[in-house]
Amino acid sequence: MDIIVCMKWTPDTSEADLTVDKEGKDIRKDDLDFDMNDWDRFAIEEAVQLKEKVGGKVTAVAVAPEDAEGMLRECLARGADEAYQLWDDAFEGSDGYAVAAILAKFIKDRPHDLVLTGTLADDDCGGQIGGMVAAMLDIPGSTLVSKIQISDGKLTCHRELEGGLYESIEMDLPAVLSVATGLNEPRFVSVRAVRKVAALEIPTLELGDLGLEASAVGSDGSRIRIELMELPPEGEGAEIITGKAEEAAAKLAEILKEKGGIGS
């Protein structure tokens, strides 16, 4: 089975103090550490585990600049058979749609029974790549997949709905699955494991190699544009709700309701 895993190289923003850059259209990234998108870590692990079970080949691919080579090498260390870096200066400024178009073009040109990726990336929090790639390839897709079973060319998976409810679905292959975190336990990658794959080549494919037009990628090929970025106002610690327990509780209930803290 040929499995292609779409990886993303993202800045680790979860713990960092962020500031918006001068143009006000992005954050300052010079101080940030970049790493494999956490969700994608589960995708590559699932791909390797599936390969270990049913055999086949795992290909990791990322639309990312040079710096991301380490991430792709880590994919090889995790058990991927080959890795490709898709980058061209023209790709700069691509939105989710343009990235999906690049990935779809790459996938279309090679055998693929299953395409895996993480449901969400921590940088743009879009959750759109998997679904878009599936539509572009005209194959079925699903997101938030928490369990994957493959037998006789048929794919069965569970996906998370809200509140402990799951949906069980079947799909024909090929398909695109965007996985949820926690569907497996990603393996550890030691320094030695990376050393072992140090000699493997990670080809970089550029615009022409992929047969793409410049107008289809980058900001020209994007459908949305970032106009402004700002940090939400940050309070100095908690606003303490005063009053007797009942009063405070009542005030808190209002706040929760207002902020979406009361679900179904």
């Binding site: 749609y97 759109q128 679904g131 878009m132 539509a135 938030l144 998370e160 809200e162």
Partner: peptide
């Protein structure tokens, strides 16, 4: 929602819409 997450991205491609 988690259910509609399976719809919106693909739909935007199908409709040729921005998402």
């Amino acid at each position: 929602s988690n259910a509609l997450l399976d719809l919106a991205p693909g739909l935007s491609v199908t409709l040729d819409a921005a998402l």
